[in-house]
């Protein structure tokens, strides 16, 4: 058995994720990062909110976890960290969870630069409630609440969190597994507020309406449609692309 599997509660398998959902890859990336860092499980607390992302640590990560209210995970995590500064506190949330209803907590945690790691499992929409648009849904996307194409612009959450004061900010997709693991390891090891935006696949809702329903093709699309921030020389190169890397 791979040693990172010790961080996963396989007794709750099969997971609640839809077939082809990228959140299982994020779960494995987090487990692998914790394993490779050789974290002391008894001093690690995971905090999650509501939505598909909330299931990643609660119940699937084998460590203390608090599954909280929608959008409030960072605020709960702040209390845990202030009361027990010796704990490693890791928040896992979604794009709606952390950037919409929880947006205020996100920017203030970054401003305080409190020593919490925050992983945003970003599937570009509200998967659990039927595929409504979120603050990271690209403009023009069709969702169950933007049937003719979304007229609103999305947040660049990585840039937002960086400019609010976070110590470490990275964005990768589930098609960039080794980089994702490394960035989570860096985030946990960095003192101060660390943020990893992990772009995920949602074949059930966002993919079906905008990219593809096929999980493999979706991951391939994320790979083809991403450009590393280090390789961008002009703004034209990043037009319509997912900018990955460390910010």
């Amino acid at each position: 058995m791979k040693t990172y599997m010790e961080w996963i509660r396989t007794e709750f398998f099969p997971t609640a994720f839809c077939p082809g959902c990228g959140h299982g890859i994020i779960l494995r990336a987090i487990a692998k990062a914790c394993d490779e860092l050789e974290l002391d499980r008894d001093n690690v607390v995971f905090v999650s909110g509501i939505g598909c992302s909330g299931w990643i640590p609660s119940p699937y990560i084998k460590a203390d976890s608090i599954h909280t209210t929608h959008g409030r995970a960072i605020a709960f995590a702040t209390g845990v960290k202030l009361a027990r500064p010796d704990f490693t506190v890791i928040v896992v949330g979604g794009d709606g969870d952390l950037a919409s209803i929880g947006g205020n907590h996100l920017i203030h945690a970054a401003r305080r630069n409190i020593d919490i790691t925050c992983i945003m499992a970003d599937n570009n929409n509200y998967g659990m409630t039927g595929g409504q648009y979120s603050p990271t849904t690209p403009k023009g996307s069709k969702t169950s609440t933007s049937r003719k194409g979304l007229s609103e612009a999305p947040f660049d959450v990585a840039k937002l969190v960086k400019s609010a004061g976070a110590s470490f900010v990275a964005r990768y997709t589930v098609a960039h597994f080794p980089q994702l693991v490394n960035s989570i390891k860096k985030a946990i090891s960095t003192e101060g507020f660390s943020f990893v935006q992990a772009i995920s696949t949602c074949p059930t809702h966002f993919g079906r309406r905008n990219v593809t329903q096929d999980p493999y093709e979706f991951i391939d699309y994320l790979k083809r449609n991403s450009v590393n921030i280090k390789n961008i020389t002009s703004s034209a190169e990043s037009m319509g692309k997912i900018i990955i890397g460390e910010f």
Partner: peptide, 26 residues
């Protein structure tokens, strides 16, 4: 003791709940 000025009342009570689960009276 530790005191914390939350960004709002939502964060304040949430932080208390998080602290309470570490065994700290909040």
């Amino acid at each position: 003791g530790v005191y914390f000025q939350g960004e709002d009342e939502i964060a304040s009570i949430a932080a208390c709940i998080g602290a309470s689960w570490t065994g700290t009276k909040a």
